[in-house]
Amino acid sequence: MDEDERLVRAFRGGEESAFAALVIKYREPVYRFVRRMTGNHEDASDLTQEVFVRAYRSLRQFQGRCRFKTWLLRIATNACLDHRARRREPLTLEAVEELAAPPEHGPEVVAELRERWQEVWEAVQALPGRQRAAVVLRLYGGYTYGEIAEILDCSEGTVKASVFAALRKLRARLGAPVKD
């Protein structure tokens, strides 16, 4: 039994602090994922809360058929897909300002970098929900296709198709020519 399984078991046995430990352990990956999915902190903060509240309420029904982290990311994905974003506009410039630019660069280079990042953020935001989830999990989370299939509750073949379709769209949008 790994650490998460022990914590889940302890929580189910009535130990509330075990859930606190799970929050501390996974709040950052959950936040980063929903932030990449929504593109802004406001929505990401609401969704992070929602994910842990949903987890808290349903942890007693968690069957342990997959790892806790996979289960939690599935909740996060569903929360993002359910979410009717209050802010549909793409990432604002102020939000791009938040991203740390390498300190060794001058202001012109930084401005140029931020413009490039903005383009990327907008392109990712424009993807359909499940394709966006697959790409974010793969590229920024480093998950295998098998893990993503578990998180998205679909086959590996569907994950392959989603990531492929998403990459083609991103490639078309971000300027690289599509010739095939």
């Binding site: 950052e28 932030r35 690289a176």
Partner: peptide, 15 residues
């Protein structure tokens, strides 16, 4: 090339 561009964007900071 596309993946390199996507990975250029730094991790968003937690406020």
């Amino acid at each position: 090339e596309v993946v390199a561009r996507l990975r250029e964007v730094p991790e968003p900071r937690v406020p």
